[in-house]
Write a protein that binds this DNA or RNA. Sequence first.
RNA 1: CGGGGCGUAGCGCAGCCUGGUAGCGCACCUGGUUCGGGACCAGGGAGUCGGAGGUUCAAAUCCUCUCGCCCCGACCA
Length: 585
Amino acid sequence: MRFTQALIRTSKEAPADASGVSHVLLTRAGMIRKVGAGIYDYLPLGLRVLRKIEAIVRAEMNAAGALEVLLPAMLPAEYFQETGRWSGFGDTLLRFKDRKGADYHLGPTHEEIITDLARREVKSYRELPLNLYQVQTKFRDEARPRAGLLRCREFLMKDAYSFDVDEAGAKASYEKMRVAYNRIFTRLGLDYRMVSADSGAMGGSTSAEFQVLTQSGEDAIAVSDGSDYAANLEVASAADPALSPPAREAPLPVEKVHTPGHGTIADVAAFLQAPTSRFLKSLVYLATRGAASGRADEQLGGVETVLVVVRGDHEVNEIKLARALGASEVFLANEKAVEDATGARVGFAGPVGFVGKIIVDRDAAIVARGIAGANETDYHTINIEHGRDYQGEVADVRSVVDGDASPDGPGRLKVYRGIEAGHIFILGTHYSAKMGATYLGEDGVAHPMVMGCYGIGVSRLVATAVEQHHDDDGISWPTPIAPYHVHLVSLGTDEAVMSAGKTLEAELVAKGIEVLWDDRDERPGVKFKDADLIGVPLRVTIGGKGLASGIVELKRRGDRSKAFDALPVATAADEITRRVREALG
RNA sequence: CGGGGCGUAGCGCAGCCUGGUAGCGCACCUGGUUCGGGACCAGGGAGUCGGAGGUUCAAAUCCUCUCGCCCCGACCA
């Protein structure tokens, strides 16, 4: 493809409203354009990347035995009404009416529609298992679209749904997808981790997220350096400290000390000259029950006050806390509630003498000579020992931090930022039971199909790849998803150079190599800058000087040095082809 | 939805406070000189200043309403 005919418009500056590295670079490289908040055009260059990702996803889904279908994006309300999501989805659902005034919406996800398809098409256990997938545009009226392609209102997603006769079958289908997803992310050339995650409203289901590691990720994940353990920070645990307790200092008698005006841990730590890890950070939480157990009406208003104690250098993890309490939701008490519960100003809460339920994090429970508020304004208590000076239920309620021991044995945890690009989980019979998607079993009885669902954010992956693969000069695509394999840069418009460019392009194309030939009448600097920005993995430069000595220059995009490989013109196409094939794996 | 910010040429911005009918850089077009890491000179095209209403002899500028966009937070099967 000749640059002059490819509708490639690069720019030195990005629009002021572009935010995030991938948004800026994709826009500057002329791959996408914003049409509205969370709504984008894909220009030819950007579309090529999107299609490459799609192709890899398709190939692996097909290889895993999934069947491709295409469901509508425009949906009558009745299906979501059937499962309660017509209202349950809230404002995220893009609703509209047709000319007759009937309710419709654009599909944000397709559990209902696929379940409807399955209940109509599948009658017998003989037809199961079945895995159907599609690559389709989804619509979600996000409260806050952001960062270009990372969080859109219209986006391309691959969604797959498996149907099985029982849990064991569903588990097997899920395993197949787990393997397929690992193959997909590996082939995409991305550094990712499969992590266990909060399974959300479904509760207790098997699920895994595929997180692509980038500094700009919205999610935090903890990864072990000595084992396979990896988990979303929402659910990550460190090894139980009680199993390998540190040497303890001999207990001292409890003392109350005057700490006038020192309410924050940093403050008191400086005042008492003690490390923050000796502190027992004591936070008053309110926990509600109900919604998660499905009995909101019975339990509504049932609010419990709990004092949560974690080490001073640790943070409470509210998701883990809610789980430990069996609560549907937990939130920090406001100032007044704290004062009511502790009898002291905020900043002076502590477990000693606290009246009410106390949850102690495992690490806080083994702190020796602990320091905490005295539940009396301007006083702290020191030399506290759990079990001796206060009682509390011990649980794992803190977020893990860098350096924590991995829970499955060897290794230390390190916290990374990640972008969720895929999520697989077992749905069970949640949708099939509600919608009557049943099959007749060998026993002649109708059973609900056991489902799983598996999503990949295809368009999000375009941006994710850029977030992970870029430098100051632009994008540096992994070869499997690069818009072209080779960026041919011809310098000047001399007949010899142009004709050599034309010949090399033709030779490469004949070998199945995708070539972008910058045939513009531009100065070398402009061409090199654009090549770096666009990020094609191999750059081949044809210049008069090189040509005179019979060579062209080959350089990898990621290589920041001035060095290049001099390829004899006669065998350049062969060598370049070899290099591309090697990079494609 | 709460808080903050911004809408002036395709893009980045100045002008607004203190009203007098719009300017700079990049990009684009023409001609010329250049040519291995975003050249230079000369000339040129392009904007109902987001929209509506109001104040005024006069509004990009002041007032009211409204739409859009961005950021932080809440939310996110």
